[in-house]
Write a protein that binds this DNA or RNA. Structure first.
Lengths: 333, 333
DNA sequence: CGGGGCGTTGCGCAGATGAGCGGATGACGC
DNA sequence: GCGTCATCCGCTCATCTGCGCAACGCCCCG
C-alpha cells in the first residue's frame, strides 16, 4: 500500500483541484463540474494530494507544536509527556531556543498538580525558560537549585539567578547552591556536601516532586567550558571517552551513564539516579547540536517529559520502523 | 474590518485548534470539548487562523498555479487569460524558468481553438517552452518565426530550431527567418524584407491567429548581446534611454514603445503594432530581472495572455489598491 | 479464452461544517 | 447611572464532505 503512486494525469488533476479548493475556496461539487469529474473523485484527489504532500499545511506561529511528532516520540520512548515546538519560520538558532524555552515555560505553567518543590538546573536554556515564565505562573513553589554553578569567569551567579527568577515569578522561595559545579578534588566536594547549609539544600533537592533541566553539548561550546570549570581540551577528552553531552553538570555517554566516574565524583549536585527515579523530570533540549544528548536521555530514562524542537524530534525518530514515520519526518523537517 | 486582530489567548487557542484539526485530523466538535469551547468557536478560530496566516496552506508541485494572483493580475490589467506558476520549493532561477515554460507549454496544448498559424519568437524562454511541449500537442499547426535570430556567435540557428521543434511536435510546418535579428543599416533591412522568401514568411507571420513570445532583460544578459547583435555598451545606452527590456527583438520603455527608433528600423520582424492588435498574444515572462518588462507589456497591451511566475505577479500587483492585495501577495511571495 | 482477484468508480447516508440570526455581554459616551 | 452600540456567543438549518458498499472494468494468469 505505497501511497504517492498516482497516475500523472490524476496528479495534475489533484493539483488543479487543490488550487480551486484551498486557494479559491470552491466546494468539491463545483470543482467536480469545472474539471468534468464527479465530486467523489475530487474528494479522493484532495485526500491523495494531502497524503502525498502536494498540499502542505503548516502552522506558522511561535507557539506552534508538532502534534504528530509528539505522539511518535512519546510512544517510541515511553515518555510521560512531551512538547515538540515547531521551527517553521525560524531563522536563527537563538530563535529556536527561545521558542522551546517558551514551550517549557508554558508547560510548567500548565503543570497540574503544581509541584510543591521544583528542582532546577542552570544554563543558557534554563535562563531562557526562566525569562519566558510569566509572573504568577504558580503560587508559592519552592525552587531548589540541583547542581552547583557559581561562575568562575563572569561576575555574579547566573546559575542561582535562574532559580531565583523562577521562584520570584511564582511568589515562592528559592534555595540556591552558590558553589562551583565541579571541584578540583573529590575530597573538597565531599566536605562541601557535608556543610550544613549545602546539605540542607541538596536534601531539599532530593525530595523535590519535579525537576526541570536542560542538557549541554559535549564540545567547546559547553556551558561548563564557558564558565571555566573545564577546558576545551578536557571536554575533548570526554568526547573521546564517548561523552555526548552533559545533564545537570554530568557528562554522559549514549548509555546515559557518566563517562568519567572520577570527574563525576567531583561534580556537586543531585546524582543522575535521582533524576532517573523522579516522578516528573522535565528535560528541555533544543538545537542541532543536542540531538545525541537528547537520544541518550530519552533512551535511558533520564527524563519523563521532553520539551524540544521538531528537528530534534525528527532525529529521535530516525531509524524508526513506525508506519507514520515518513509523514512525521516530513512535517518535522 | 482589520483582520488579524485577535485576543492573544484566542490566538493561542487558534494555534492549538489548528494543530488538532490539521495535524491530528480531529473534528471541530472533539477539539471543542478538548479545549473547553463550543464547536462554533473552534470553527471561527480556524477561520481566523487561516485568514491571519497562522495556518498556511501551500500547494507544492512543479505545475502548481497561483489562482488568487492570477485573478488579481488578470482583473487589474484586463488580460484575456493568465497563468501564474508557483515558485514554492524552487531553488534556482533555471528551475523557475522551466516551470513557467512548462506552464506555457500546457497552456498552448490546451488552447482552443488551436490556431491555424502560430507566430513565435526565440530566446532562452522560448527554447524551454519548445522543449516542454509534448509530441502531438496539436495537429498540423503552421509555426512562423516572427523575428530574425540567426546567431552570429554560435554554430547553427537556435532561433529557427525553436520554431522547428514546436512545429515538429505538432506534426505541422515551420516557416523560419534565417536572417539576423538586427542589421547594421536600415537600407539592408529594407532590401532583405523585400526578398520574396522573407516577405512571404513575414506576411504569413502578420496573418497568424496567435503569437507566442518571451521578453528579454535590458542588460548585459540580453540574448541579443549573447548572440552578438548588440554590445553590452549599446544595451547600456538603451537602458539610459529608458529601455526596460526587449519584446520580439525590440527594446521598449515603460510606455511599451521602442526607445530607439533608429535601432528599431534596423530590426527585422513583426512590428510591435501587430502584436498589440493581435487577438491572442501570449507572453511568457519569468524571473526577478523581468518584472519591469512584464509591467511595460501588460500596461501597454503588448499581450493578451500572460504566463509568468508568482514573484513577477506580486511585482505587478504592487501599489494596487485592491482589497485582496495583502492575501495575494502573501501567497505569491 | 475465461475466471478470479484487485483497484477504481459511483453512490447513499450520516456526520461534520459553514452561513445567518437573535440574545447576552461588555464598552463607551452622555 | 443609563442608553446605545458593537461584538461575541450559542444555536438552527442547509449544505458539504468523508466513509462504507456494491458494481464495474481491468489485468494477470491459468
Amino acid at each position: 500500500m505505497l501511497r504517492g503512486l498516482m497516475n500523472s494525469s490524476d496528479e495534475l488533476m489533484a493539483v488543479r483541484a487543490a488550487e480551486l479548493y484551498y486557494d479559491e475556496g470552491r466546494t468539491q461539487d463545483e470543482i467536480g463540474s469545472a474539471l468534468h469529474i464527479t465530486r467523489w473523485k475530487v474528494g479522493r484527489l484532495l485526500a491523495q494530494a494531502r497524503a502525498t504532500g502536494i498540499v502542505r499545511i503548516e502552522i506558522v506561529h511561535p507557539r506552534a507544536r508538532r502534534v504528530l511528532a509528539e505522539q511518535a516520540v512519546k510512544r517510541r520512548y515511553g515518555l510521560k509527556d512531551i512538547v515538540v515546538a515547531s521551527s517553521a519560520g525560524v531563522s536563527s538558532a537563538e530563535e529556536l531556543q527561545r521558542r522551546v524555552a517558551q514551550a517549557a515555560a508554558d508547560y510548567l505553567t500548565a503543570l497540574r498538580p503544581a509541584p510543591h518543590t521544583l528542582g532546577v538546573s542552570w544554563g543558557r536554556t534554563m535562563h531562557d525558560v526562566a525569562a519566558c515564565l510569566p509572573r504568577g505562573w504558580a503560587h508559592g513553589v519552592g525552587v531548589v537549585q540541583i547542581n552547583g554553578g557559581l561562575s568562575l569567569t563572569k561576575y555574579g551567579d547566573t546559575a542561582s539567578a535562574t532559580a531565583l527568577v523562577i521562584a520570584q515569578k511564582a511568589a515562592g522561595s528559592a534555595h540556591v547552591l552558590p558553589i562551583p559545579a565541579i571541584l578540583e578534588h573529590t575530597a573538597t566536594k565531599r566536605s562541601i556536601e557535608r556543610d550544613r547549609a549545602i546539605a540542607g539544600v541538596l536534601d531539599r533537592a532530593a525530595h523535590a516532586q519535579a525537576y526541570l533541566f536542560g542538557a549541554g553539548v559535549a564540545g567547546a561550546d559547553s556551558a561548563l567550558v564557558h564558565s571555566g570549570y573545564l577546558t576545551a581540551e578536557e571536554v575533548e577528552a570526554l568526547v573521546r571517552k564517548g561523552a555526548v553531552g552533559d545533564v545537570v553538570g554530568r557528562f554522559i555517554g549514549v548509555d546515559g551513564v557518566p563517562v568519567d566516574s572520577e570527574l563525576d565524583s567531583r561534580t556537586v549536585g543531585l546524582p543522575l539516579e535521582r533524576i532517573r527515579t523522579a516522578e516528573t523530570a522535565i528535560a528541555v533540549v533544543a538545537g542541532e547540536g543536542k540531538h545525541e544528548v537528547a537520544r541518550a536521555m530519552v533512551t535511558n530514562g533520564l527524563c519523563t517529559v521532553l520539551i524540544t524542537d521538531d528537528g530534534t524530534a525528527a532525529a529521535l525518530l530516525e531509524g524508526s520502523a513506525e508506519p507514520e514515520r515518513r509523514e512525521v519526518q516530513e512535517q518535522a523537517s
